[in-house]
Amino acid sequence: MSTADICRISGLKRTTLAQQLVRGKVAETTVVSISRALGLNPAESLANFSTFADLTRLAQPPTPAELVSQVATMDLLQAVITRSAADPKDGSGTLRALSPAPHATSVRNWVDAIDDGELRHRVSAATGVAPQNYSAQLTANRLSPELAVATSRAGGVGLTGGLVATGLITEAEAGWPVDARQSALDALSDGELVALAGERLQALGKTLRRQEQEQAQTEKIWENLG
């Protein structure tokens, strides 16, 4: 199969792929796109590269905290409402389907879910990435695949969690059971669920307030200097 064929079936731009091949540095997203086009499992394809060598070999199921971290904030709130409205004898009530991972703050929520307090230091020590650069990526809801795997290693969890949280691969491709997130969500006690939703709401409120502040500052600059 030629590179032209690969580009055609995977939807990659030919110039992009050619450039990456010339530099000898093919992006993880490229590997994932091509794997999907060829009907291969992206995680297994990534495992062919040394950085991700133990990706599938050491596959372990995600922890409940990781699973819940990949539930969108609005879905968590929905769960709170559904539970409070449901007949106590009826159990979990009727839930709408969870929106697929990743969500707007999935990367930070995932790192928080596996963080024992020292995680960021260990990742920084292992990769040489400065803590403030790491934090900046989390705030932007991004994490390079290499850092995501390094974070999993440092957190002692399955290596695919970060790749799901960053949206590089899907839950199914990572081998997560279809209803894993829903089950983990259902397994939370009311107290745990409400506390978690509260934390998420607080963080969302902080983000929105910051954005509003920045918007106000921008308006002020347009007003006075524009």
Partner: peptide, 25 residues
């Protein structure tokens, strides 16, 4: 510097502000 701010303001007026991240869920 002044020109940049002016250009930015005109561009901002032309395209409506995108929704802030986190509320579009």
């Amino acid at each position: 510097g002044l020109v940049l701010i002016w250009v930015g303001r005109m561009a901002a007026k032309r395209r409506p502000r995108s929704q802030p991240a986190g509320t579009s869920e």
